[in-house]
Design a protein around this nucleic acid. Structure first.
Length: 205
DNA sequence: TAGGCCATCTGGTCCT
DNA sequence: AGGACCAGATGGCCTA
C-alpha cells in the first residue's frame, strides 16, 4: 500500500494543491473542528424538491425547463430525480464526515471532493506506516515526540503524565493505538515521527 | 473571462 | 416494476 494517488505536476490545479499543502503545518486540531465549518453552501442554496417546488429558478437547469411532468412517465422521472438528489446528499454527508476527521486548519477552505478522497487515502497510508514503524521497534513511545518542544501540551492535549504509555500493555489493539495517536494531535504526531518532508511527500495530493 | 467545482436532471443498466 | 447506481449534459457560482 502506497500513496499512488497524487496530483501530477501538470495538474491544472497545482496552485490550489500548493495552497493545500499548507494545511499540514503542525497545528493541533480536534477531529471535530472541521465538522460544520464549511456548511454545504450549495446544498443550502437550493431546496431539494421536484420541479415546481423549492428549486430556485437560478439553479434550475434550463435544458429541462418546460419538460412534461404530468404523465405517469413524468411522475416516475420526478420520483427518480428526488431519489437521486437524496442519494447525492447522502454521499456528500459521508464526504463531510470524512473531511471532519482529516487534519486541517479550522480556517482552511473546504477540501474539494477529489481532494478529500486523495488526502484520506494518503493519510490512511501515513497512519499505517506510522503503526508499522512503531511495531517494528516494538515500542510506540520511541516514536512519540522526544520532547514537547515541538508541540506544546496546551495545544495538542498532549499530557506529560501519559507520555510513557505502552501500546502493548493495557490497550494494544490497533484501534486503541489510533485513538492514542489522534489524542496526541494527528499532524503533530505524524510530523514529529516522520518529519515535515515525509508529510509533504505522503500526505499531499 | 476562462477554468474549476458543484448540484441537478436525465436516461441507461443492473439488481431485487 | 421499482430502486440503486452510474455517467453525460447543463448551467450557476467562484476565483485567479
Amino acid at each position: 500500500m502506497s500513496p499512488t494517488i497524487s496530483c501530477e505536476p501538470g495538474d491544472p490545479r497545482t496552485s490550489r494543491g500548493r495552497a493545500a499543502l499548507s494545511r499540514f503545518s503542525p497545528t493541533a486540531r480536534s477531529p471535530a473542528d472541521g465538522a460544520g465549518d464549511a456548511p454545504q453552501d450549495a446544498f443550502l442554496r437550493t431546496t431539494p424538491s421536484v420541479f415546481g417546488g423549492g428549486v430556485s429558478s437560478a439553479k434550475r437547469p434550463k435544458h429541462t425547463a418546460g419538460r412534461e411532468r404530468s404523465g405517469p412517465r413524468g411522475r416516475r422521472r420526478v420520483k427518480a430525480n428526488d431519489r437521486e438528489r437524496h442519494r447525492m446528499h447522502n454521499l456528500n454527508s459521508a464526504l463531510d464526515a470524512l473531511r471532519s476527521i482529516l487534519p486541517a486548519l479550522p480556517d482552511d477552505a473546504k477540501l474539494t471532493k477529489i481532494e478529500t478522497l486523495r488526502f484520506a487515502h494518503n493519510y490512511i497510508w501515513a497512519l499505517t506506516e506510522t503503526l508499522r514503524m512503531a511495531d517494528q521497534h516494538g515500542h510506540l513511545a520511541d516514536y512519540l515526540p522526544g520532547s514537547p518542544s515541538s508541540v506544546s501540551s496546551a495545544e495538542s492535549g498532549y499530557s506529560a503524565a501519559s507520555d510513557d504509555f505502552d501500546p502493548r500493555s493495557s490497550h494494544s489493539s490497533v484501534r486503541e493505538l489510533n485513538c492514542q495517536i489522534f489524542a496526541r494531535g494527528e499532524s503533530y504526531y505524524l510530523a514529529s515521527v516522520c518529519g515535515e518532508d515525509y508529510l509533504r511527500n505522503t500526505l499531499h495530493y
